[in-house]
Structures are given as C-alpha cells and as structure tokens.
Design a protein around this nucleic acid. Sequence first.
DNA 1: CGAACAACTCACCAACTGGTACATACGGAG
DNA 2: CTCCGTATGTACCAGTTGGTGAGTTGTTCG
Lengths: 234, 234
Amino acid sequence: MTTHRPDVGPTEPPAGTERIRDAGRTRAEILAVATREFADRGYAGGRINEIAARTRTTKRMIYYYFGGKEQLYVAVLEHAYAGIRALEQQVDVEHLDPVTAIRELAALTFDHHEAHPDFIRLVSIENIHRAEHLGRSTVLRGLTEPTLAALGTILRRGRESGVFRDDVDALDVHQVISAYCVFRTANRHTFGAVLGRDMLDPARRDHQRQMLGDLVAAFLQAPGPGSGAATVQP
Amino acid sequence: MTTHRPDVGPTEPPAGTERIRDAGRTRAEILAVATREFADRGYAGGRINEIAARTRTTKRMIYYYFGGKEQLYVAVLEHAYAGIRALEQQVDVEHLDPVTAIRELAALTFDHHEAHPDFIRLVSIENIHRAEHLGRSTVLRGLTEPTLAALGTILRRGRESGVFRDDVDALDVHQVISAYCVFRTANRHTFGAVLGRDMLDPARRDHQRQMLGDLVAAFLQAPGPGSGAATVQP
DNA sequence: CGAACAACTCACCAACTGGTACATACGGAG
DNA sequence: CTCCGTATGTACCAGTTGGTGAGTTGTTCG
C-alpha cells in the first residue's frame, strides 16, 4: 500500500537518486497522506489544507494531480480497494475437504481484515455516503469475483459430498464472514464503550478466529430451513 | 446531559393548545432535525445552518439550547441510544426451550435493526470518530444489560440441558448477532455496489432472517473447540 | 397590572475551506 | 547550451461555517 502501480516515472531512475521534481513520488505521497487523512476523519472531515501540510509539497499540487477534493477521495478509494489482494488463491479449494477449506478461507479473511483497519474505515465512510463515490468509479466490479468463485467451489464440493446444506449461496456465506470480520473492526469503539470489551484485544484473537470458523462450519453443516431446532417439542 | 427528560414544559399544557413560545417543542424539533442531519451527513458533514433552516426556529436557538455543534451531536446520540428500547423482554427466556429462545431473540434483533436505520448510521458515524463523543457521555453504560442478561439466561439453560456448547459467553453471542444485523444495514451500499446484491431487498428478508437463526442456533449447538470438522480425516 | 425572566430575533463576524491566477524553476531533448 | 513543457511555489480569493452580542417580545406570577 505504499506508492502505487509502477508509477515512479517513465524510465525508472537509479534507486538512491533523489530528484527534486518527481511527479510519481509527489503523486504517491499525496495519495498516501490523503488516505490517512480521509480514513481518519472521513470525507467531510478531511482537510485539503491538512493533507498538503503533511506532504513535502503544496496544496497546488493536489489540484494539479487530482483536480479536486472529491477526485482525490475517489483516487484514495480506488487505490485502497486495489490494494486488497485476492487471498482466496491461498486456499486449495479443489483438494481440501470442504469444511477445512471453508474454515481456512474464513480464518484468512479474519486475519486480512484485522491487518487492514484503514481499508475498513474507508469502507465505513463510503457507506455513510451511500457509496456514491464508489458507484461513480468503474474500477471495482469483479474485484471480489475470485473470492466468490473459490467460495462457490467449496460450497459445491461440500454439497456434493452431502455435508453442506444447499439453500445458501456463495454470496450468503460471504456476507456472513464479512459481517463478522468487518463488525469487529468497524464497530470496535462503540461496542467497547457500551459493552466494555475490546473485540480486537490480542488476548482474545484466537478465540474470535475460532468462533468464526465454528460459526460458518456449523452453519453450513446444519440441516436446511424448516428443520429448526433439534430439541424436544413437548 | 439532556437538560430534562420529560420535556414539553413544567406544567404540561392542555393538548391542542399551540403556544407561540414553547421551549420543549422547540428543543425537541431541533433535536429531531439534527438527528436526521447528522445521521444523513455525519458529524463533520452536518451543518448547523442547515439544521436551523429546516427548523421553525433560528440558529441562535440551537446555541441557546445546546451550546454548540458538538453538544448538539452528543444530545442526538444520547437521545438515539435512549430510544432503542429493550426488546429482549419480549422473549420468555425462562420457559421457551433454549434453541427456540435464541432464535426468537435473534429474529427480534434482526427486525429491530432493520426498523432503525438512522440509529445504525449514527453508530457507524460515531465509530468513525472512535466513539469519542459517546465515551464522554455517561448515559449509556448498562443500556444493553437487559439484553445480555436475557442472553445469559438462554445460554445457561441451553448448557444445562446439554444442547449448547460452553465455551462462548453472552457477549460472544451478542457480538455475532449484532455483527450480522448491523452489517446488513451499515454496509448495504458498498456491498451492493461491489457485489450487486441489496442485502435489504424485502424479497430476501425472510431468507436473511432465517439464516441468522440457523447461524446462531447451529453455532451454539455445535461441539466445542478443537472438535473442528466432523468429516473424515484420511 | 407590571416586573422579571425565559424564549426568541436579527445582524454580524472571524476563521477556515476548497479552489485558483500567475509567476517560475527544473531537467531532458536536440 | 538552449529551449520548452512539465512540475512546483506564492499569494490570493470568495463562499461558507460555527459561533455570538445585544436587543425584543411573550408568559407567568406576585
């Protein structure tokens, strides 16, 4: 999540050479500082002046490179989304048994979210604005397709071997996993303030990760709808 | 803070009497408009001028009654939190069988969250600000205690009858349920923009409610930690 | 009735905010 | 070395924003 793309200049200058005028570096620095600023204070709360002040360049450059506050914010959003690498390729969805595979995918997602709090914050902020900026961008569609594909494969194999229910689809499961992972980070503060427990407390991390695995595994292995409780009905 | 709870005035005027100068009414109107404004645009994005304009009074009154933007926002937060009634008392935790009880509590929470999107937004906004305003307030502690008590009772009874696992506590379960319910509303827009499914689509509401019930029930009925998958291990 | 106080109006402001006109200096191409 | 476009710094601006000083009117209560 440092610079971005290969955008350091047309002919990569020898490392160590510090140019005074370096479009790529300036642009990247603005983007990095803007990311922190917006993630920290939201779109309306983020200040162009503040971003400029924390950069080795001036406000003028922000407008030179990005055009305006909103465009800068969209650039930050796109850059952040692009930085979220597909992690599902680390799960061998074809050969692992489905329960193990889904647990692994859940655990990976869990760690991934915990490692990128700024991204979660940007997502929360964007939701406050009803995703109007994200909607205007075009770079995002299909970003999660690999994840959904992997999930779909796991679900299919699980159903075929008779251990998974068949009335939920990949999106449903993705939603459940995301909800759990996002909530821990995004609602950490109010949850902590009202309930007195820090969901991100490292001492509880393993327990929380285990819970998610159990949650998803148990859910998928449970009988379909209608068969409600397995308990006695007097 | 909240200068007074019953509002409306010292000696409740006969209903129907429209006074020109009515402190309670003015205050309440400001609070209502401010709630919408802040829930809509966030704290930094909310405008005092705009709130004043949409009220039958003037900006000066906002400062007269609330003191400033931040204090008004805190008042909005407190009022919103106070408005979230305890719903767990609608569940007969002592006599229903535990699985049915937890399903009912989950379903109630589900509907409750869907019915109060503004509250969810305020919570999200407050999390962006790391709950700094909520933390300064004192009215909140213990607000969710009834819920946790009910949950605790259900869990205890479930454990005693041998159907529930014993390595998760009430807070854990509350977290799972909240995560699911909050995520649906709070992250509706980015989820929809990226994945193309509206989590709040009425056509899918029953399915989503059912999923939550299955999720929590299956999770609690699953064997404890370590016993991971029930599948073959070659 | 007529103080006295609460409720309210109006005009005003200093600071900030996003945004820009304009001058200028670097650094690679030839 | 010279030229020229890209990159950059300075100064500035108009609109907005949260906030306020000071006076005015409705209500209530003795």
